[in-house]
Design a protein around this nucleic acid. Structure first.
Lengths: 226, 226
DNA sequence: TGGGCCCTTTTTGTATACAAAGTGGCGTAT
DNA sequence: ATACGCCACTTTGTATACAAAAAGGGCCCA
């Protein structure tokens, strides 16, 4: 979608991965639900092989649990686990940001702003929910580019895919969008002006606030169910 | 090996994963080397399907790069990348340790000591090199059990598998073993006596020292090559 | 002589077919 | 009536076979 790619032939496996990932993250496939290989294969008009390989990849992403001879299920992600993911981000990302800011180029900052603008317009169009977290992740990633820490970026990306479903929840249902927007803009400005400490602090709060939002949301939800 | 497992049928895929992982980590398969599916299949007496699935899993672990239609190669891990992994550990593990110490039970501490003893005896028997890092990781993991942070533990585990080849190097060639042993014992005692700050500090140094060892080692190696 | 195109060969990707493990239900024996 | 075991069915795991993409080499042409 974002690639100016010179003709890319996607394998069926990759297609299946994308479809399933989206279905799991959007809640279309519910947590704990068994994923039957033949059913999926038939549904997507492929053989079981690409389905198996896709499930394997999704397991690596933490979205699926694959048990030998028993089958795959969409993983549950408890609020506690999600909180943990946010806390990990709150630990790692500020560190990255601190290392990054001194090396950020004008170009990188502008690119970050571009992404941010895209994100903001996505916030405005309701039917782009599935792109929110991708753009969000991307924006954050842009700011860390100066740190030159590819491995850490990978880890962060993984944490994000996993907490993705909760991020969606949080943004959609807690009215977290305006606040997130403000904070993103502020963050970008602090980076521009090289205010490392302020930026890092803001970032920690930004992430922990999201965590709290998710927690509150789910607690309420549980109460409503009773 | 360590499981008191109630009859476990390993799938061929899992077997292939283990064989290949060991070969890559031990350097038997060199970085950048292409991994031909049919060759591996023939060599291990399985069909290409389990080989493919194994390669996919190893890609998720970061040990293999899998390119569609082009094939898989064992990944290179530059010293810079390895350093980054150590630094990430130095960031995350002390945090885990701090959260863990107050909740560590007598039982958990004793278990940690058991593992440590095993590790020490493995250090002594040269032909157990491949178990070193597993036991090492396991020991560290024991100390973090009190933190109740399964996700973070997963991340750490991933970082360790990746830096594994360098850990081996470091221990084998830098004479890092005695120092590691001392530090491990100290760390355990600090945990027992609840000295959080001291333990965390020691841990940071322990990890960063390993990083420096690797760096120095590789620099020398490069010089020797010239 | 050098560059580009086509064809051959190799290697990967996927479908189909078969083997093996797991699951549930029925029947029997106590 | 219940507990155990056997058998049929479902689902997963793996081999084989075929399709499609990429890599390499030779040929033609400029």
């Amino acid at each position: 979608m974002s690639q100016a790619s010179p003709i890319v032939h996607k394998t069926r496996t990759q297609l299946v991965v994308e479809v399933l990932r989206e279905k799991i993250l959007s809640g279309d496939i519910k947590a704990g639900e068994p994923l039957r290989q033949s059913a999926l294969a038939q549904e997507l008009n492929v053989s079981r092989i690409p389905v198996r390989e896709a499930l394997l990849q999704l397991e690596a992403e933490g979205l699926v649990k694959f048990e030998a001879h028993k089958g795959a299920t969409a993983t549950e992600l408890s609020v506690e686990q999600a909180s943990e993911l946010f806390e990990l981000r709150a630990l790692i990302e500020p560190d990255l940001l601190r290392k990054s800011i001194p090396n950020l180029t004008e170009k990188q900052l502008n690119h970050a702003e571009e992404v941010l603008t895209k994100l903001e317009s996505a916030f405005r169009s309701e039917n782009a929910v599935n792109t929110w977290s991708e753009l969000n992740t991307q924006f954050h990633a842009c700011l860390y580019l100066g740190a030159n820490r590819p491995q850490a970026m990978e880890v962060i990306k993984g944490l994000n895919t996993n907490s993705d479903r909760y991020i969606r929840l949080q943004l959609l249902l807690t009215g977290g969008i305006p606040r997130a927007e403000t904070e993103h803009r502020q963050l970008l400005e602090l980076c521009r002006s090289g205010q490392i400490d302020a930026a890092a602090t803001l970032l920690v709060n930004h992430i922990l606030h999201a965590k709290d939002g998710v927690k509150k949301l789910v607690e309420e939800h549980v109460n409503n169910d009773k």
